[in-house]
Every structure is written in structure tokens, then in C-alpha cells.
């Protein structure tokens, strides 16, 4: 338990370094795969942060306290699912390309750590420039993922970019279509997620 908490604390500490594109943050994951698992908490918090950033949806829907909490958790889980799909897709692609020496756990941890800029998603609530910030955070996250892949894979640049981009596209598609499929259920539960039917 103490070890898990310690890993969580270290993962959150590494998030700052990852956002600043520090090589050490990602090499640490390769050396300590347990932190890679703990790093999965970052997309969870990032999802909740984004949902807070879209508070106008919650207010407009007059969502109650418990539903707000549930919406925050669901959005975090959607983010986590996106990370797992992204890493799995990238892993498959890298395996097909051959010469992959990175475990799926480390790959997932790398993407999770690269979600660090998204922890600031709550700031997208700001008027007018919030929307610009939202896109900037997307770009920043993608750069972090690319950099993280480059550090942990150490492979050819082309392969790093293609695997990161392909994984992101599969993840985006899953989020998009998954969101559509789950919309009736979310609507019935009166839960709100970014990009969902209530948005």
C-alpha cells in the first residue's frame, strides 16, 4: 500500500518533468515499470480536469452534485480507456514493425505521463481564450507523447511518429464511436462527458 502511494506520488512528480519534455521522466519509467502503472492516474485526473473545464455543460444541464461527481469519474475513465487503446494500438504497430523492446505497460505509462499537460484542462473554462487553450493542450500532449515514445523506444523517428499518430487515431476513433454508442446510456443516467450528446 505504502509502495503504491509512493509510486503515485513519484508519478505525479514525474508528470511535471514529462510536461516540460524532460528525458529523465520517461527513462525513469523504463527503469521502474511499477511507476508506469501508477502513472495511469494522470489521465484519470486529466479527464476530471477537462470535465471541470467544461463546467458550463454541467451548469446548463443543472446536473446535481452526485451526477457531477459521477461525470468527473466517467470522463476520467474515458481518458484512461483512450490511453490504453492508444498504447495497445501503438504496441501492435511497433510489434509488426519488429524490433520492439518496450513492454506494453511502459508504453501505456509513457502515454499516461504525456497526458500531464491535460491536467491543466480545467483552465479551458476561461472565457474566449479557453477554447484556444484547449487546442494548445491537445498539441502539447501529442508532442509529449511523441517525445516519450522517442525516449523509451529509441527507434527510428519515422516509426515513432507513425506509431504515436496511428495509436492516437485509433484512440480518437474509439472515443468518438464509443461516445456515440454509450450516449443513450449516459443520457439515461443523466451523466455528462465532453464530446457526449449533452455537449
Amino acid at each position: 500500500m505504502i509502495s503504491l502511494l509512493s509510486d503515485l506520488a513519484r508519478a505525479l512528480g514525474l508528470a511535471v518533468d514529462a510536461a516540460l519534455l524532460q528525458r529523465a521522466a520517461f527513462t525513469h519509467l523504463v527503469e521502474h515499470p511499477s511507476i508506469a502503472l501508477a502513472a495511469l492516474v494522470i489521465p484519470l485526473i486529466a479527464g476530471a480536469s477537462e470535465m471541470l473545464g467544461k463546467a458550463y455543460v454541467l451548469a446548463a444541464q443543472q446536473v446535481g452534485r452526485w451526477r457531477i461527481m459521477a461525470s468527473l469519474i466517467v470522463t476520467g475513465l474515458v481518458y484512461l480507456l483512450g490511453v490504453l487503446v492508444w498504447s495497445a494500438s501503438a504496441h501492435v504497430l511497433l510489434s509488426l514493425a519488429g524490433g520492439l523492446s518496450v513492454s506494453e505497460t511502459v508504453l501505456a505509462g509513457t502515454i499516461a505521463l504525456a497526458y500531464a499537460p491535460r491536467l491543466l484542462s480545467v483552465l479551458t473554462v476561461a472565457p474566449y481564450y479557453g477554447e484556444f487553450l484547449d487546442r494548445a493542450l491537445d498539441a502539447w500532449t501529442f508532442v509529449c507523447v511523441g517525445w516519450g515514445f522517442w525516449v523509451v523506444i529509441g527507434g527510428p523517428l519515422g516509426l515513432v511518429i507513425v506509431s504515436a499518430a496511428a495509436g492516437w487515431m485509433v484512440s480518437a476513433a474509439v472515443r468518438h464511436y464509443g461516445g456515440r454508442l454509450s450516449e443513450p446510456l449516459l443520457r439515461r443516467l443523466r451523466l455528462v462527458t465532453p464530446g457526449g450528446g449533452h455537449d
Partner: peptide, 10 residues
């Protein structure tokens, strides 16, 4: 800026 929209939301 983060607090600015709150009045409108309320």
C-alpha cells in the same frame, strides 16, 4: 479569467 464565467453559469 477562470472565475469570470461563473456568474453567468449560476
Amino acid at each position: 479569467s477562470t472565475l469570470a464565467p461563473l456568474e453567468t453559469l449560476f
